[in-house]
């Protein structure tokens, strides 16, 4: 590709490619318009899931995440990704192993069995932080790429947990009421809205969705109540697992609690895709459990 494109190894994870492939397609196409080229990270696996997997044995979590990191080290390329859960595994293990010799030696002992070595030679970024970063892209460039502004829509931001928190180990600043995601939403011509307890978790993480679905959905339900209260037309996030929890979760909430919201849930890359003129078909929005029709009618 052209010389002024920045290239990254695109770490896919599981839920984006295997449940919401529109997120993957959108990430590739929308980033291209912003000067970011995403290249396949061949042979990558699950990050592996920080809650369900790290909870059982942190050592295996370190080692399997390190294997994914080494694949990118071999390409000599930084990783970018579109999921908070993946960020927790891939970014955090990279960070820990770069700074903890004991853990790194342990990981390299097992990686040697598969002829690999963690060197700590690359960095890991969430695509959303690259978009926000003035040196890479920046809000103005995002705004300039919009051909179909999402005018007249109210959108509730969901930051999720594992990109920003724990804040002392991250670099995103305030986690009580951050506003940078709102800037990226407003850049698409939409109106971002504030709602009660914005920073609360979606309820899916830590293996809780699999362990106690009702408990997990009760947390989600509280967020949906708060989002609906301010009249949002859609929720947007940058984590396919949060997306699954809000999207499929609404069907489960209707069954279990009898509450119906019909609130479309869109990954920021899907939203950006729409704003850059992609069609709902090009984003596979029909795979969403909650029909996006009401939202699409406002913008198409």
């Amino acid at each position: 590709m052209s010389g002024n494109m920045r290239q990254y190894a695109f770490f896919l994870g599981c839920i984006a490619p295997n449940r919401y492939p529109g997120c993957e397609a959108a990430a590739i196409k929308t980033s291209e318009k912003l000067g970011i080229e995403l290249l396949p990270l061949k042979g990558a696996s699950c990050c592996p899931a920080p809650g369900a997997f790290g909870a059982i044995d942190l050592k295996v979590w370190y080692a399997l995440a390190a294997r994914n990191l080494v694949l990118a080290e071999e390409m000599n390329m930084d990783i970018t990704l579109i999921c908070n859960g993946c960020y927790k595994s891939i970014w955090e293990v990279n960070h820990i192993l770069k700074h903890n010799d004991e853990l790194r030696d342990g990981v390299n002992e097992v990686l040697a069995e598969v002829d690999m070595e963690f060197k700590g030679s690359i960095d890991v970024w969430h695509l959303i932080e690259l978009y926000y970063d003035e040196k890479i892209c920046g809000v103005e460039k995002v705004r300039a790429s919009v051909t179909r502004p999402l005018t007249g829509t109210k959108i509730a931001p969901h930051y999720g947990c594992h990109l920003l928190k724990p804040k002392k180990e991250r670099h995103f600043g305030d986690t009580e009421n951050p506003m940078w995601f709102e800037e990226l939403i407003d850049a698409l011509g939409a109106e971002s809205v504030q709602y009660r307890n914005k920073m609360q978790c979606c309820g899916a993480g830590g293996g809780v969705r699999g362990f106690d679905l009702t408990h997990s959905l009760d947390i989600t339900n509280e967020k949906l109540i708060n989002v609906q209260e301010v009249g949002a037309d859609a929720i947007t996030e940058f984590c396919p697992f949060c997306q699954l929890q809000y999207d499929r979760g609404q069907v489960e909430i209707a069954e279990k609690f009898g509450q119906v919201y019909d609130l479309p849930v869109l990954h920021y890359n899907e939203l950006l895709g729409l704003a850059q003129g992609m069609t709902p078909q090009e984003l596979a929005l029909d795979l969403h459990a909650v029909d996006c029709k009401t939202f699409l009618e406002k913008i198409l």
Binding site: G51, H162, K165, P166, K167, K168, C201, V208, F211
Partner: peptide, 17 residues
């Protein structure tokens, strides 16, 4: 023990860091 969603809200607010 298995009901923690690992949201890290407690970690960000713990006054003992």
């Amino acid at each position: 023990l298995w009901l923690c969603t690992t949201c890290y809200s407690c970690t960000d607010r713990c006054p003992r860091d």
